[in-house]
Design a protein around this nucleic acid. Structure first.
Lengths: 332, 332
DNA sequence: CTGAAAGCGCTTACAG
DNA sequence: CTGAAAGCGCTTACAG
């Protein structure tokens, strides 16, 4: 790997001058500029961004820390982050915290050490670790309430998401909709639960729920438990889209038809939902926008355009497909 | 963030001594060791691994570059890489090349700059970019033939995979199995194709195939095309497990039942396949082993235990579930 | 305009 | 055993 010194020697100038040419940080004699450019061409020199960041404090890297790289919703957000990042000359590094605070800390530490320009994170708990608190980098949180500790919070309107999905099931005629309740350590889980409970209360319906994780495996367990505890359930609010495959599987094994015997509403709006059979009615989060906005906030911060939007709640939308059926349609 | 100088000052020693204590790189007076340890505790100092790597050439980071973070098979491998990495005090950085040689180059460059200890990659093409060739880091390739350019190749036995899936369909009575052929720029795709063709020829069956990408969307397109071009198809060898949902969707829309009217064999053995309805018969790649071995090779390389296993072809296994049915079973 | 020097946070020969 | 110094690959005040 060619280094700045090699280029300097070849061009007959100092490293300082090469650096100036690369960064455009000062006027350089035209003749020398040309020689430097040629030398860069010849040697194939690419500046070592990390060494550079030791001095400047930017490496043009954005870190994205997720609890699981098996979570397709978070990965779709990652795609959007990366698109936005690359368009602006940044790179994205994806880190898997594995729901493990120790790993989370290690990655935050690492990103800090490499002078990343910011971190986008779905953190594992609300009692945030020292590492997050002490981290000098801009942090955008995808799954928490706003707080002065973070640069910004970006998430969708989970309370509304909880509401509209519940309302939809009621409109479809469900009297015993059960919520597969996401982990309450995430504010998204709490907000959705709230939305669900509020709608139930408004309609004189008994709120029913099962605590669930986001994994497919847990989806199997939960669905079984759900059917045992609430055999009369006529609707399920899935914890996310991905687990719906597990729900189908258990339901189908017991001969319960969707949507005839029991209706389902998913959550997230990942591509997978549209491919399921029956196609999944779900709450669409604005995935692309969540990712792009998060990246933009960090990039703006670097370029000193203070975005001044600490809390960003993006709207959700109900997408009706085949796992629910309105009563009107039913009677027709 | 506390730095080594802060610790040194607090302990009343030089930075060199602190460094020696941290790294155990030389004997240090017991009394001073104690003072340094305390100072580290008090300041919460964590050494900056990246700065350290500027001198030492290791940052205890393994890079994993994939063409798409939406590919669940590659993500499951990533989980295994990370497990192995963490157990040995390494971290894993996941990078999405997005099937874009430019991004691929940028990430290889970045990993080199941060003195990663090695790169595990599913590269996008066979005419490898300069960046891969010139990269001084150990490189483990997941999707190519062995070559002196790489430290090692780890992949499963794709030729056998192509064979056993085809043989299974024939045993189940298929006379017109169609291969959704993966991109031929990957050696995995070429090997599977070979295995398929060989078995067809041995049985006097006409090889039929459709070129396919790994994405769900392309799965839809391919299945439609497949049914139009080969309406008599009675078996499908899917390009991977993930696209089978797309296949189900198209088949179901046309009222063709699985496995009664048409059988399906997937490829990969991701968790998703077991959740499908009907559950997917598939070729299981040893996902966990692929990931762990790849990481191990890099770690061994760092620790100078030269592994001396440049080409690692791991065995695959057929997992029969519900999308195929043997003739015996059929007649019973 | 441009080079020598100092510095980013660490580590390790080199002396002592 | 231990500190001052040099160095990892870059950048930028500081002089000129």
């Amino acid at each position: 790997m060619a280094q700045i010194g090699d280029v300097a020697k070849l061009a007959g100038v100092s490293s300082a001058t090469v650096s100036r040419v690369i960064n455009g940080s000062a006027k350089v004699n035209e003749e020398k500029v040309k020689r430097v450019m040629e030398a860069i061409e010849v040697t194939g020199f690419k500046p070592n961004e990390i060494a550079r960041s030791l001095y400047k404090k930017s490496s043009r890297i954005i870190g994205y820390i997720v609890p699981s790289i098996l979570n397709i919703f978070l990965n779709e957000i990652g795609r959007a982050i990366e698109d936005e990042a690359f368009q602006n000359g940044y790179k994205m590094i994806l880190c898997n915290s594995d729901e493990n605070p120790k790993k989370e800390a290690a990655y935050i530490q690492m990103l800090t050490a490499m002078n990343a320009d910011g971190i986008i994170i779905t953190a594992n708990n609300d009692n945030l670790d020292e590492e997050i608190r002490n981290c000098p980098l801009p942090i955008v949180v995808l799954d928490k309430e706003a707080s002065s500790r973070y640069t910004a919070v970006v998430q969708s309107d989970n309370y509304s998401g909880g509401r509209i999905s519940t309302e939809h099931l009621l409109e479809c005629g469900c009297r015993h909709p059960v919520l597969m309740r996401g982990p309450q350590k995430y504010s998204s889980g709490r907000q959705r639960f709230l939305g669900y409970v509020d709608v139930c209360n408004e309609h004189g319906i008994q709120p029913l729920f099962i605590d669930s994780q986001f994994s497919s495996n847990d989806g199997l367990r939960c669905t079984q438990e759900l059917l045992e505890r609430f055999p009369y359930a006529d609707g399920i609010l899935a914890v996310n889209d991905m687990t719906v495959l597990s729900i189908y599987k258990v339901l189908s094994a017991r001969g319960r038809r969707v949507p005839e015997d029991i209706m389902i509403v998913g959550y997230d709006g990942v591509e997978l939902g549209g491919l399921m059979n029956p196609a999944l009615t779900t709450v669409m989060q604005p995935i692309e926008e969540i990712g792009r906005l998060s990246a933009k906030i960090i990039i703006d911060q670097v370029e000193d355009k203070n975005p001044d939007c600490r809390e960003n709640i993006l709207p959700v939308q109900l997408k009706v497909r085949q796992t629910t059926r309105s009563q009107a349609g039913n009677e027709a």
